[in-house]
């Protein structure tokens, strides 16, 4: 049986457009609002990444850090992310959920319990920032057994030989980090270069859905639209931060931003 993630990509391919993948942090700015945000942007996105915030995120830039710290300060607990996922999954326009975060949170929760709760709350995929290949082999196998996608990451520093091995162990979706940066950095590589690397990876296995993330904003998204999917995270976190600062409603602000992003890649 095809996974929900696979089906989402197939739908986009039919419509001749890349999948739009949003990233927001669970409980940012609080539990209720983060659900409202997800519900409101859901019609515009194809997959919804939800971050479980970690106090020491070494792969994230300022925007996602700010969102994460805000969520933790507002009392985020791991059980909240499963509640959020379940509630979101029960809404009409929900999309496949990918949970993203750092390994210490999963390790502490217990890998098996984590996967069980993922299954129960309707999570389709997992990205773990600091559990690279081959360290992730065992956990990725466990995910597969539960029919949950473990999403492997590739970076500009990943050698071709290593890419082949990682892709061999990957499931339906693979995530290419566009540049040498933490999340939210300014795109310091030209979209043309990024797409060249993208094509090289696609050539290794055409069937894998390859998405690009890091540095994608309203300005850059259009130039990368030939990819299978595009992830936007920091921009959304920043929008929440800014709207809170200006005492505006983050839900409507975010809805507008994501709607615009979507229109740029149609």
């Amino acid at each position: 049986m095809k996974s929900e993630i696979q089906l989402a990509f197939e739908k986009c391919r039919k419509e001749n457009r890349p999948a739009l993948i949003s990233y927001t942090v669970s409980s940012d700015p609080n539990i209720k609002k983060s659900l409202k945000i997800l519900k409101s942007i859901s019609p515009h996105v194809d997959l919804a990444e939800i971050g479980f915030p970690f106090s020491t995120p070494i792969g994230d830039g300022a925007d996602i850090q700010t969102s994460s710290f805000r969520a933790i300060k507002n009392g985020f607990k791991m059980r909240d992310i499963f509640r959020l996922a379940k509630k979101y999954k029960n809404t009409k326009s929900s999309k496949p959920i990918i949970l993203m975060g750092y390994y210490n949170m999963i390790f502490n929760y217990g890998e098996n319990k984590f996967l069980k709760d993922c299954k129960k709350s309707g999570v389709s995929g997992i990205i773990c920032v600091d559990l690279p290949w081959p360290e992730n082999k065992d956990f990725a196998k466990k995910c597969k057994k539960k029919s949950i996608n473990f999403i492997q990451l590739l970076a500009p520093t990943t050698t071709k030989d290593r890419m082949k091995k990682i892709i061999k162990d990957s499931h339906d979706m693979v995530y290419y980090i566009s540049m040498l940066s933490t999340t939210g950095g300014k795109l310091k590589v030209s979209p043309r270069r990024i797409l060249e690397n993208y094509k090289k990876i696609k050539r290794i296995n055409y069937k894998k859905n390859l998405v690009i993330g890091f540095g994608i904003t309203e300005k850059t998204i259009k130039s990368l639209k030939s990819a299978d999917g595009l992830v936007v995270g920091s921009l959304l976190c920043k929008t929440i931060t800014n709207s809170l600062k200006m005492r505006q409603n983050p839900v409507t602000k975010l809805d507008k931003v994501v709607y615009n992003l979507r229109n740029k890649i149609l």
Partner: peptide, 10 residues
């Protein structure tokens, strides 16, 4: 161990 983002592996 080496619990690092993929970028740092190489």
């Amino acid at each position: 161990g080496n619990f690092v983002p993929e970028t740092l592996k190489k």
